[in-house]
Design a protein around this nucleic acid. Structure first.
Lengths: 312, 312
DNA sequence: ATCATCGATGAAAATAATTCTCCTGAACGA
DNA sequence: TCGTTCAGGAGAATTATTTTCATCGATGAT
């Protein structure tokens, strides 16, 4: 009699994606269940709860618990969600399903296939899962902020740098701090109305977490961009923007995480630009002129005038 | 324990479609069930068998019979099939990729669609067009090089920085020069056997071209990463790696150019890593340990240690 | 070092859902 | 009218799912 309730599918798309994301933060037995499902989501739609429990080497009780943790009303609901997703995947055949670790001996064309599809999927999945209201909220805050601090180490730093670079061009008072010390110092100088954005794929880079914590303490709006929304970084933030992990293999995920992060940041950028239209267009013109001077003249004939300050 | 068998879905096309076809030839009570499902297939995936029976004004037994008639092993199987179909429909809607300039007033979800599909396509296209022999050649040179210089301004600098970051980790003596002056100075110090990589989407950033020219003069291998293979930058290089521009709009191309560049650089990175396997793995371990120290332990309960140095 | 606490877990009880059995009654044909 | 057939439903039987509860082991406080 009791119907299946789907409250779960909040920020809706992608049970599998979400699963991947939460996997590290799950207890042991639940992880095993998750692993089983990830290994063959389709099989899971067909199996009974007992089967699944069995294959995961755990009890049915645990599987039910698992469903609950993910926010489903029960096993039936999970099954339905998985099936819906499976249908979707089937539709999108273009995904060359090469989910594999890259081996030292792999021919480069294979590597290319793997990397390109992982990247591309990372983008799709991030797009599917992004919560636009949060982006709006962040953009609003950034547009008004007295100062914006960006922190990220390693690859995440690359993404942060890019956003800083773009925001600067539209006159947002904004800094990217590639090192922990400067970042922390400046975080301490933030005030209410300011914004701090911390990026970390894993959400566990200590320095970044600390910076956000400090920023929050000062009353700034803190934003986390991470793939794991229960990670320490996420917990230290007011707004969490989740990048998808296609979690093929760890190494690969790390490569494509950057693409996901960039997508998120692109959106923030666009949303901010929209909010500050006059400032923006005028700023564009100024910077465009500045950049232009460092350009070789556009070839005699060919192609559309390549102006634009985005370009470099 | 009994799993769901799907013999039925073999001649697979559309449960809903088939239902519609067979409807007239079904007995009364079954027709009512079918009608209920057709009216809202989605609701059916959520309802329990009792609900459905109820709404169809019939008994649960009849619903089971109904499932059997359609060739399903039982209600659960039907439910899964319906869900899969629903999912497919939903996906179809997503595929609208739109080639448009982004306007100040665009709602963010539209922006997301545009940006995500542009990025994703940029990746696909770059992958399709990439000349792997050239990548091999570059990788070979980088693996052997005494020093590698990377130059790029603006967004291209972001890409360059990322590659530098990665190459450093696998012990390639490598520098990213974010500013023209340093870059030029160091280019002048290159020698045969060294490598200089210049990145510029347009291929017309004067500084970058100059650096490559200088490097070439010193006998280093010069590599251009650009979207225009007849641009000044391309002409100043020994090897040209072309990133695709999906002639969308200029602004958009500029955003996604970064993704293309990153893909190319990822490949170089992997190819280099493959060539220096021992060096690489050993270097990975060292850097992994270094990074690990700056991590928060993985969530309360232990679960798999999430290492990986790529991650950040 | 010892104890208290807490969360994770599985066994088993409890409940719910599904399937099966069997019976009724209507429709049809001899 | 009487069999025969078959759709359909009630409820028993079965199976699946969920809940409860006791146990275990890790962790942190004393």
């Amino acid at each position: 009699m009791k119907g299946i309730s789907v409250t779960a599918t909040l920020h809706n798309q992608g049970v599998v994606g979400r699963l991947r994301m939460e996997l590290p933060s799950l207890p042991d037995a639940l992880q095993r269940v998750a692993a089983q499902i990830l290994e063959d989501p389709d099989a899971a739609t067909r199996a009974s709860i007992a089967d699944l429990a069995d294959r995961a080497g755990t009890s049915t009780a645990t599987v039910t618990r698992f469903c609950r943790v993910l926010g489903f009303s029960g096993y039936a609901a999970l099954r339905v969600a998985l099936a819906a997703e499976g249908g979707r995947a089937e539709q999108a055949r273009w995904e060359t399903d090469i989910d594999r670790e890259i081996e030292p001996g792999d021919p480069l064309d294979r590597v290319l296939g793997i990397v390109a599809s992982a990247d591309s999927r990372a983008i799709q999945e991030t797009a599917a899962r992004l919560d636009l209201d949060r982006i709006e909220r962040v953009a609003g805050a950034v547009a008004e902020a007295g100062r914006v601090e960006l922190v990220g180490l390693g690859s995440s730093g690359t993404a942060a740098r890019e956003l800083a670079f773009r925001l600067e061009r539209i006159r947002v008072p904004c800094w990217f701090r590639p090192d922990a010390h400067t970042a922390l110092t400046n975080a301490a100088l933030l005030r209410p109305g300011d914004v701090a954005v911390g990026l970390s794929h894993s959400g566990r880079t200590r320095e970044v977490v600390e910076v956000l914590a400090e920023a929050r303490e000062q009353g700034a709006l803190t934003v986390a961009v991470t793939s794991f929304d229960r990670s320490p970084l996420a917990q230290a933030a007011d707004v969490v923007l989740t990048t998808a992990v296609h979690e093929t293999t760890f190494r690969l995920a790390a490569l494509s995480a950057l693409h996901s992060q960039l997508l998120v940041l692109d959106l923030i950028y666009v949303a901010v630009a929209q909010r500050t239209y006059e400032r923006t267009t005028e700023a564009f013109e100024v910077t465009a002129r500045a950049v232009q001077a460092h350009r070789f003249a556009a070839e005699p004939n060919r192609n559309r005038r390549s102006r634009s300050q985005e370009d470099s």
